[in-house]
Simulated assay, not measured.
Amino acid sequence: MQATLPAFATTALLYLLAAATALAWFARLREAFARPPPVIAAMALLAGGMMAFVQPDLVAFHEVWAGLFVALSLAVRRPGRWMPAVAFGLAAVLIRETAGLYLALMAVIAWIEGDRREALGWATAIGILALAVGLHAHAVAQVVRPLDPASPGWSGLLGFGFFVRTMTISTALGLAPLWLAAPLVGLALFGWAAWRDPLGLRVLAVTAGYALILALFGRTDTFYWGLLVAPTLLVGLAFALDGVRDLIIGALDRRRITVTRMVR
């Protein structure tokens, strides 16, 4: 379908999707912070994570579109209002099947939280993906021959450092030296962990899930998998300051709890 559209139309659609994603995240971040300055900082970090997603030269990358749909899905998902999130997540996997991990993680979290209907919604999207992949595999099998080149496999085992590298390539961290960019990736993950909100948990789980996939199965030429989680990564830095403050307060708290055992 993309090939049938003029180049300017495809680029315009990409910009429209990026704008919708940014607006959805603005609405969520405005609720998370009490004052405008942190919201502005968080939106600047979001823009830093989306640098690669507004480059016309990358419009043909499936991960660019899928990554924006994943970010949009995360932003619009709210307790009891999960159907738009599932729809955007389904759009992501129909563009790039590797976004299926996102659907699986969202389904698992919903199930653990006790929302069976939401879990079923995500599972339904996974079922649609499985059907689409099955039909695609059947079509490919009709044209593949024994002498065709085979895939080199997915046992890259490049480690967590490869995930860090993909994030620096995919975001504004590419403008910083690696000795600074690498700790910022870890600090961003810490920030998401520090935000006590269901959205923070989901972003952390999805980012960590793709970090694991890249570390275990990624190859040097599949760095673009990181684009699936790049848009939201740096926003975690906006929550990191409060997280560090809470850690310091907890470390300096010298109160002791005394337990008295009484035997009768």
Score class of each variant (00 low, 15 high):
A104E: 00
A99H: 07
A110H: 02
P84F: 12
F160I: 13
G80I: 03
R165T: 08
A125Q: 08
A71L: 10
F53D: 02
V133R: 04
A104N: 02
V76A: 02
D57T: 13
T168M: 12
R81D: 00
F88Q: 03
L131G: 05
L90G: 03
A92C: 10
L68M: 11
A52V: 03
V59W: 04
G153M: 00
A176V: 15
G159N: 09
L46G: 03
V86G: 02
L131I: 15
M50D: 11
V140E: 08
I109M: 07
H136V: 13
A52E: 07
W65I: 00
A139H: 09
A71I: 05
H62A: 06
A141C: 13
A60Y: 12
L180F: 08
G49V: 00
A44E: 06
D115V: 04
G153W: 00
A87F: 12
A119R: 00
L58Q: 11
S73K: 12
D57F: 05
R145Q: 12
E118H: 03
E113M: 14
W179L: 09
W179E: 11
V86M: 02
Q55G: 05
R81V: 00
D115N: 11
I112A: 10
F162H: 07
A110Q: 00
G159C: 04
F162V: 09
A47V: 02
V144E: 11
F162E: 01
A132L: 06
W111H: 12
A176E: 06
G174S: 10
H138M: 10
D57K: 14
